[in-house]
Amino acid sequence: MTDTHVPETLAEFRDEFLELPEGDRLELLLEFANELPPVPDHLADHPEMYERVAECQSPVFINIEVTDGVVAMHATAPPEAPTTRGFASILAQGITGLSPDEVLAIPNDYPQSIGLTRAVSPLRIGGMTGMLMRAKNQVIQKR
């Protein structure tokens, strides 16, 4: 994979994971789980504005907003699903602030690039890929 289309923040996150020994990467993912940005007030009481990520075993919901050419990703994931929450946090923090074109250019295999394919199940990596694909689809619909 080339870095040409990986936005800076997502590239930094990836590098953070890859710099750690494999055994410590899950710990970093759990740190991300604790940093999932809160849902903004105007969306908090409107679950109908979120899309369920069916690829995730846990109930994960995302919402993409595009305002003045800037994307914001919001996600909810239960505290009892820290791996999934961590993936949602990486994407929400990494996508928010990008332009629609930058989001659409994120490589589809980004979830496989962060060095967790042996630490978590393929199903969980598939869940993160599902989040990314749904985020891209919402960007296409809303730009």
Rank of each mutant, 00 (worst) to 15 (best):
M1I: 12
T2E: 09
H5K: 10
V6H: 07
E8S: 15
T9F: 07
L10R: 10
A11D: 07
A11E: 08
E12S: 15
E16S: 07
F17N: 03
P21S: 10
P21D: 15
D24N: 11
L30F: 15
E31I: 12
F32N: 00
N34Q: 15
L36K: 02
P38E: 12
V39R: 00
D41S: 14
D41V: 14
H42G: 06
A44D: 08
D45I: 10
E51V: 15
V53E: 04
V53P: 01
A54F: 09
E55N: 04
C56M: 09
C56P: 04
C56V: 10
S58F: 06
V60K: 00
F61A: 10
V66N: 03
T67C: 05
D68S: 11
G69H: 00
A72Y: 00
H74W: 02
A75D: 01
A77D: 00
P79C: 03
T83G: 06
R85F: 05
P100A: 13
E102P: 04
L104F: 00
P107N: 09
I114W: 00
I114L: 11
I114F: 05
G115I: 10
L116P: 01
R118L: 08
A119F: 06
S121N: 08
P122Y: 09
L123R: 12
L123I: 14
L123V: 14
I125W: 01
G126A: 09
G127V: 09
G127N: 05
G127S: 05
M128A: 15
T129N: 02
G130A: 10
G130S: 08
M131D: 04
R134W: 01
K136W: 03
V139S: 05
I140V: 12
Q141K: 12
R143I: 06
R143L: 08
